[in-house]
Amino acid sequence: MADALGWWLAAITVAVLLAYQVLLAAAGRRRPQRLARAAHATLREQWFVAVSAQKGSEVLGVQTLRNSLMSATMTASTSVLALMGTVTLAAPSLDATFRGTGLPQFTPRLAMELVLIALLFASLVASVMAVRYYHHAGFIVGMPVESQARREWSEAGVAYLGKAGRLYGWSLRYLLLVVPVVAFILHPVTGPVAAVLVAGVLYGFDRFSPAAIR
């Protein structure tokens, strides 16, 4: 009976998070201008175009991208440390589960530990890839504005910067999604409550309203 309730609570926790992402994707197709990700993608693109049109802005551009690269690097470091700690804590449970003969018996706690590992790994991969694309964009921004190479690589620079921004955003999102999973592991009842709270926090982050920001 306890395991059945645990599975229900785990399913509700994951379902709330998935439902929010589905609704966000649907809203992005209908009204992308109302979402922060679309607005910030446009901001990055316009920044690159503005920097490319201003002679002598190469150093400023590289410094700006270096700040973004360092932020993504810190996220990657946080993710890998959390991933290592989670794997260390989950190792005894995994060993006890798979050591016996026959099919392994999964518990709700073990399932959510695996979800936690998956989220942290996804955050690590997204942040590392963001570092990669910020690195490429930095080389392009560092080229002299009036050079032929800069003109040839400008379109790729916009694409790299956009890709880096989206990946960095996903890396932070995955870290936030960790909170309800950890809450469930600490006490299953708190999982759905934390999922609703995190969805509310994400809703505030995902909306784009300059009036609300002011």
Rank of each mutant, 00 (worst) to 15 (best):
Y20A: 06
A4Y: 08
L197S: 13
P144E: 01
S79V: 10
R34A: 15
E155W: 04
L60P: 00
Q54C: 01
T88E: 13
L176Y: 15
V80P: 11
T42K: 01
R150W: 01
A76M: 08
I213W: 14
A159N: 02
A19D: 09
R109L: 13
V115Q: 10
A76Q: 03
L18A: 14
G6C: 05
M84V: 14
P108G: 03
P104H: 09
A156N: 04
Y133P: 10
R29E: 07
S93Q: 15
A39S: 02
K55R: 08
I12W: 12
R30P: 07
V198M: 13
V16F: 10
V198H: 07
V87R: 08
R29Y: 11
L114G: 00
L43R: 04
Q105D: 12
E45G: 00
V193G: 06
N67E: 01
A26Q: 13
G28L: 09
F121H: 09
R31P: 02
G142K: 00
L161I: 01
L114V: 14
S68F: 09
Q21K: 05
A156L: 06
G102V: 07
V131T: 08
T97W: 11
G100T: 08
A96L: 14
S123V: 06
G169D: 12
M129V: 11
L5P: 07
G157D: 00
A137M: 04
P144W: 04
V179P: 08
R29G: 14
D3E: 11
A72V: 01
D3V: 07
R207D: 06
A195K: 08
G165W: 02
K55A: 12
L24W: 14
V51G: 00
L83Q: 10
V14R: 02
S127P: 09
M143L: 15
R150T: 00
V201F: 15
M84Q: 13
A27P: 04
A50R: 04
M84W: 06
Q21F: 09
L202T: 12
A199S: 15
Y133N: 09
S52V: 00
S77M: 15
T75F: 14
M1L: 13
M74N: 14
R132V: 08
Q54R: 11
S52T: 02
Y20S: 04
T101C: 01
A50D: 03
L89E: 13
G56K: 00
A195Q: 08
W170P: 00
A183G: 12
A194R: 12
H135S: 14
S147F: 02
Y174R: 03
Q63R: 04
L119R: 12
W170L: 14
A27F: 08
Q46D: 00
L103Y: 10
R29P: 07
S147M: 04
I117V: 15
G142I: 02
A19Q: 12
L110W: 11
D206V: 07
T64Y: 03
L167K: 05
Q63F: 04
A212Y: 13
G142M: 02
V128F: 13
V59H: 02
T86C: 06
P104L: 06
P32I: 06
S209D: 15
A4S: 13
